[in-house]
Nucleic acid binder design. Structure first.
Length: 488
DNA sequence: GACTCACTAAACACCG
DNA sequence: CCGGTGTTTAGTGAGT
């Protein structure tokens, strides 16, 4: 059922330090069940009853929590757990054979797009129909290659994979590629080479993986990939946001679960991806995480299904790889140079700013990654470390609208505009402005509160406020009890 | 229409 | 020599 790691070698640490206690357990849990057996995954209780899990995974019991976790983490894991429940209600095939989201533009595009007729056509290329994994087992994954590679690598215990195993992982997770011509492999290699997010690890002499190198995620851009991943697989149901279901049951009856939080990759990793940038957590996800309806994802500002420039830039701009030499961070690996540019990747963020060449503009991931020898694998509590680091170096203007992508909807366009107006009223730079400009325009201290308000405005516009209030009231007590007394 | 982005295709070099 | 891997360039389609 769940994703299966290729029966391959899992190279031990060569270039990279490995193994954190908690996080590595999360990573190494080969299944959700295992992760939960370790009491690591989805530790936060839910305040409201959810449908029973269908995969047999134990639902965290009310009142239990993972010691040492921050409340934000807990609340986000709440969100994760909710998502997991939701996803479980849809079954695994959904995760493996999802339809493209948000039209053709940009989403793993091509085999299946028009001119490549030997590919199975995308059954719902327009993104207007709910995907149906049963009926369309070979529909195109909604993930870009960047995301696919990212997931593959992240899914590996060592966080490094040779390209061949990346192929394998993708094939195992998405049957779509089994029937696809091998061109996608070229795309994978192309992406590995050009995308800054991916770095080549110098092969350990002792390792005999055959040809090629190991590839890993550049910690500097990991957050970008996470962002990209979060927004990529989203199902095109505008009503998810416009008219939130009034009950968990209603929500679960919806045919458009958020894929990302419950993806095999995500489940395997026990919610690690919830380490979203602080701006997201504080301004949106945190609020939303009190809700039960994971379909109402944090700050669904984007018109659903539309991959905006912001969206795309997360994949490319922040994650661009320069062709040769050197890593900017202390990452052990490597063969990329964020100081150079590339034709395919201009290394611009959504705004056109180049935060690879301007360290001050780099996303938080940089700070996390560059913080001495930060390695998301090697610290005992690196998970919380990440949270803490993110807290410290919040990318204030981490585009909030990078959270979602589902098919375009006028309603959501309107909401987005409302939100932008709200932000403007509050003096917050529009997220449509280039990152540099936004940073320049923003008052350094107040934006957090402003963003919270903006988030609130948006949520209100999205019609989820009432829902939130309900949930918050109901869960406030329980969450209070869960919080660790010492934070930060 | 310009620009940006993700992607495919192809060519080429390198290596085991 | 062959095949896999990695890099680079060109071109396309889509969104902004």
């Amino acid at each position: 059922m769940g994703p299966v790691m290729p029966p391959s070698k899992k190279p031990e640490a060569s270039g990279i330090s490995v193994a954190s206690a908690s996080l590595s357990h999360l990573y190494q849990a080969s299944s959700l069940q295992e992760a939960e057996d370790l009491d690591l995954a989805f530790p936060a209780p839910l305040a409201l009853p959810l449908a029973p899990l269908t995969d047999g995974a134990a639902k965290p019991e009310k009142g239990t929590s993972t010691p040492g976790m921050e409340d934000e983490e807990l609340t986000n894991l709440n969100w994760l757990h909710e998502s997991k429940n939701l996803l479980n209600s849809f079954g695994d095939p959904v995760l493996r054979s999802v339809s493209p989201v948000g039209g053709e533009g940009g989403v793993a595009g091509n085999p299946g797009d028009g001119d490549h007729d030997n590919m199975p056509p995308s059954p719902i290329a327009g993104g207007d129909l709910p995907y149906d994994a049963d009926r369309n087992p070979n529909c195109k994954p909604p993930y870009s290659f960047s995301c696919l590679i990212f997931m593959a690598i992240e899914d590996a215990p060592s966080k490094r994979l040779p390209v061949k195993e990346i192929y394998t992982w993708i094939l195992e997770q998405f049957s779509y590629f089994a029937n696809a011509p091998t061109g996608w492999k070229n795309s994978v290699r192309h992406n590995l080479s050009l995308n800054k997010c991916f770095k080549k690890v110098d092969k350990d002499r002792s390792q005999s993986i055959g040809k090629g190198s190991l590839w890993c995620i550049d910690p500097e851009y990991r957050q970008n990939l996470i962002q990209a991943l979060k927004k990529t697989p989203y199902h095109p149901h505008a009503q998810v946001f416009s008219t939130p279901p009034t009950s968990p049951q209603a929500y679960q009856s919806m045919s458009s679960p958020p894929l990302w939080p419950g993806s095999p990759f995500f489940r395997r990793n026990g919610g690690v991806l919830l380490q979203v940038p602080q701006g997201v957590i504080q301004n949106g996800a945190r609020m939303m995480s009190h809700g039960l309806y994971t379909g109402i994802r944090p700050l669904p500002i984007n018109p659903i299904g539309i991959r905006t420039a912001d969206d795309r830039s997360v994949l490319s701009g922040g994650c661009r790889k320069r062709s040769d030499s050197n890593p900017p961070c202390d990452s052990p690996l490597v063969s990329s140079d964020p100081k150079e540019d590339h034709t395919y990747s201009t290394n611009q963020s959504d705004d056109g700013s180049d935060y690879t060449s301007d360290s001050s503009l780099r996303p938080i991931a940089r700070d996390v990654a560059n913080d001495s020898d930060f390695d998301y694998e090697d610290d005992e509590d690196d998970k919380s470390k990440i949270q803490l680091e993110i807290k410290k170096e919040e990318p204030r203007d981490w585009p909030i609208d990078t959270l979602d992508s589902t098919p375009s909807s006028q309603q959501h366009n309107k909401k987005r505009h409302h939100f932008l107006k709200a932000k403007q009223r509050m003096g917050v730079a529009s997220d449509t402005l280039p990152l540099k400009k936004r940073r320049a325009e923003k008052p350094p201290e107040s934006d957090d509160e402003e963003m919270k308000e903006a988030a609130g405005s948006l949520l209100h516009l999205a019609g989820v406020r009432a829902c939130l209030n309900n949930i918050t009231n109901r869960t406030a007590k329980g969450q209070k009890e869960q919080k660790e007394p010492t934070k930060n």
